[in-house]
């Protein structure tokens, strides 16, 4: 880790009005959670529906995408990454510093809102909040690492990431059962199902994979994405274009 790189990354991520974009989505989620509580009277099933659907399906992937591509994508896009790469620092250090900032930002702007959404919309003894906290944290770590790697690999990282997070996981996952096995969201939901025990089926929190498989796949994907990102940054080619 390098403190200067982390400091620069934080400034790049939150500088100017960019922080506003990161705040809008969590605020909207919390508003919807309050409305859901008002409409359903704090029913955990409705709460699990909102958190499992809108929060885990849209807000967490989108926030991880914004943060993950935001820490390194713009610098590669406008070529200013060369000033950083030219410094006598291992590229591994540069990438991991940026990754740590991204993970911290994802924790604040994706995981905490998801937990708050479950707590506000309706819960029983914080069990739903804790379960979704674990799920959102696991999903956020994997998503963010994937999207950081993606933004080193391709300049269309945002669109490719969205195609994966929303078309693959949300749309295709609904129709084609096999797709659901290859989905960060499903892997991350496995521990939540385990934590909720008998209530899981009642509240509609289910996963298609078992806990061991889910955790193993999450860890493997995260490590693979991080390694890929470092390798690609070590051989980065800056292409001019639009």
């Amino acid at each position: 880790m390098n403190r200067v790189v982390m400091h620069l990354t934080v400034r790049g991520l939150f500088g100017r009005r960019r922080a506003v974009l990161l705040v809008i989505l969590p605020v909207l989620l919390l508003l919807l959670a309050a409305l859901t509580r008002w409409a359903s009277g704090g029913d955990p099933t409705a709460s699990a529906g909102l958190t499992g659907g809108f929060a885990m399906g849209t807000v967490v992937p989108l926030m991880c995408l914004l943060v993950g591509t935001g820490v390194i994508g713009p610098e590669i896009d406008d070529g200013s990454i060369v000033y950083l790469l030219a410094k006598p620092l291992p590229r591994r250090t540069i990438l991991l510093s940026k990754l740590v900032v991204a993970l911290a930002a994802a924790l604040v702007f994706a995981v905490l809102p998801a937990m708050a959404s479950a707590a506000i919309a309706g819960d029983q003894g914080m069990r739903l909040t804790m379960a979704f906290g674990v799920t959102a944290a696991l999903a956020a770590i994997t998503y963010t690492t994937i999207f950081v790697a993606l933004s080193v690999v391709t300049r269309n990282a945002v669109i490719v990431g969205l195609l994966y997070a929303l078309v693959w996981e949300t749309l295709l996952g609904g129709y084609v059962p096999g797709v659901r096995d290859v989905s960060v969201r499903q892997w991350a939901l496995a521990p939540a199902e385990q934590l909720l025990g008998t209530r899981a089926a009642e509240w509609g929190v289910t996963s298609v994979v078992s806990v061991t498989v889910g955790l193993a796949l999450l860890a493997a994907t995260t490590v693979a994405a991080a390694v890929l990102a470092v390798r690609r940054l070590q051989t980065l080619r800056l292409t001019t274009g639009d």
Partner: peptide, 25 residues
Amino acid sequence: RGLGVAAIVTTLLVASGMSFVLSGI
């Protein structure tokens, strides 16, 4: 450019999600 892409998609998706959830409520 990257930020613009993300901002536009986020706006359109969130507008859609909001309208469905609000309709439902």
